[in-house]
Amino acid sequence: MRGWRALGLLGGGAILLLFPLFLEQYKLYLASLTLVYLILAIGLNLTLGYAGQISLAHAGFMSFGSYAVAILGPLGVPFEGGIIVGTAIAFLWGLVLGFPALKVKHHYLAMVTLGFNIIVFLVLRNWESLTGGSFGISGIGRPHWGPLRFLSDRAYYYYILGWATLVVASAYWILHSRWGRAFRAIRENEMRAEVVGVSLRNYKLMAFAIGSAYAGIGGALFAPLLTYIDPGAFTLDRSIQFLMMVVMGGLGRFEGPFIGAVVVTLLPELLRASEGFYLIIFSLAVILMMLFMPKGLVAAWDWMVCRLTRRTVSPAHPPPPPEPAAVLEPE
């Protein structure tokens, strides 16, 4: 198993490094966009998939990153400075928004976050002196380290890839710590988690804030990719798009966001011929998927991996082993 995983990592890494060399501009853009979405989906998967808190404000948090680099860049702040500021703002607002999240059950949380996204959108549109209002901000610069400039689309792809690697690694690291276990405990049985000492307040705030911070990073990388942003890029619709991404990928599974980001970015391209029908097909797909594959596409992925590694698919619920009654004599 370990061997397979290492092989997969190496192979995946090699592909991600090499294939952009052969892509033309638009495909390169799509590849970069997929990586940005991956970062955002990992964040939402942490909040929703692992800690069970629905967030419909992900696009709002994303906008903090985008506007931070767009506004700070012209003031001479290095790009990474912008990322840090945007991420910090997203993190702090995540904490703030996490507070009502503690008091309310998740149908309310959906509402609060949804409302937050609308407020962010309204503020972006109306605070013209800072955000340029509905015209947005154009000519957003790309990062450079001294003589090393990430100006070309290809170079910027590698820059994003670097950040994506960092995000994936850090998420892996968090989720395999005691925090990750606590998040899962909260999702699986909130009351029980509290009774074994899990501070719902601390962990929920952290899950929410870290998920939002990842959105901030994704947003910061998103702005220079297009070199232009306006409030329309951060609407509720986009938040819902991220939600669909993690749900389609598979909630609470590490592989989920990878699958979700690829599918949601590439599906519109594949369905390009269908023009406006894309959204109809997409919404139908969402409904069908909830009905027939509620665990997400990762379920299909599991099946494939099992076939490839020639292991038998273990049934979801193997019959319980016999009662160890006889074993249970006192020591």
Partner: peptide, 13 residues
């Protein structure tokens, strides 16, 4: 949650 997602899908549809 599944119903939330499904009704979001339905609204888009």
């Amino acid at each position: 949650l599944p119903l939330v997602i499904a009704t979001i899908g339905l609204s888009m549809l």
